[in-house]
Amino acid sequence: MHGQTMSGWLLVALCAGTGAYGLLRLRGGRGEHREGAAGEALMGFGMAVMAVPAAVLAPPAWGWMLYAAVFGAAALRGLWLARTGAAHAHHLVGSLAMVYMAWVMAPGGAGSGHAGHAAGYAAGGIPLLTGALLLYYAVYVVCSGARLIPVAAGPGGGALAPGARQELAPACQVSMGMGMIAMLLTL
């Protein structure tokens, strides 16, 4: 999660913008729409904080515990809500992925290069788990991106009218999925 400084800041901006849009949706939403917007806002801002380049601001030694606690709580909530729909299951996977990345960042964890090697793991975490998360997010991004393609309006076809309000949530979901891929690739 500590790649090149410029790409790190671009990822921070993308994730923070997505989190801000989640907050805007949270204000106007109700029920499940509101819960989804809250989850996306949390993921967006959490990813933005985690993506800050270490060359600019090194995370404190205890920072990984804060990430793990916040996203662990979000995972528990996602587990409770996952019984009602697939969108909550996706938030559960995202929260667990954030806990995993926090664990990899931990001093003495798999990402430190000391205790992680002693435990038999590579410096970037558990390769099979990282690969599974990369595959999940790649499929998620492709499927979510396909939903962004406009479809014909009716029997005669036609595109959406200019100025017609389109929801940005699917585009934000694609960008957050791509952000997760970028963060996982740097493990």
Rank of each mutant, 00 (worst) to 15 (best):
H114R: 08
Y100C: 03
G31I: 03
L66P: 08
A38V: 02
P59Q: 12
G108C: 08
V56I: 08
A82M: 11
G31Q: 06
A51C: 11
M43C: 11
G108W: 02
E40T: 13
A73K: 00
H91Q: 15
E40L: 13
P60H: 06
L134K: 14
A146S: 07
G109L: 00
A152T: 07
G156H: 14
A58V: 06
H90P: 02
A115P: 00
A61M: 10
I149K: 10
G108L: 05
A68K: 00
A55E: 13
G44M: 01
A54R: 09
A82T: 07
R83Y: 01
L81A: 15
H90S: 12
A89D: 01
S95Y: 04
A115S: 04
G108D: 02
G157K: 05
R30K: 13
V151Y: 07
A115I: 02
H88L: 00
A138Q: 08
W64Y: 14
A138E: 01
V49R: 01
A61G: 13
G125H: 01
G111K: 01
A61N: 10
A54S: 14
P107W: 08
H88S: 11
A97I: 03
G131H: 11
V142E: 07
H88W: 01
M98Y: 06
V141C: 13
S95I: 04
A138K: 11
H114Y: 05
A153H: 12
W64H: 15
I126Y: 02
G156D: 15
V70K: 02
G120I: 12
G131P: 12
Y67W: 09
A82H: 05
G157W: 14
G111N: 05
P150M: 04
A132S: 10
V139D: 00
T130A: 10
A69P: 01
R34C: 08
A61T: 06
M65A: 15
Y140M: 11
E32Y: 01
P53M: 05
A122C: 02
A38L: 13
V93F: 01
R30E: 15
A102Y: 03
P155K: 10
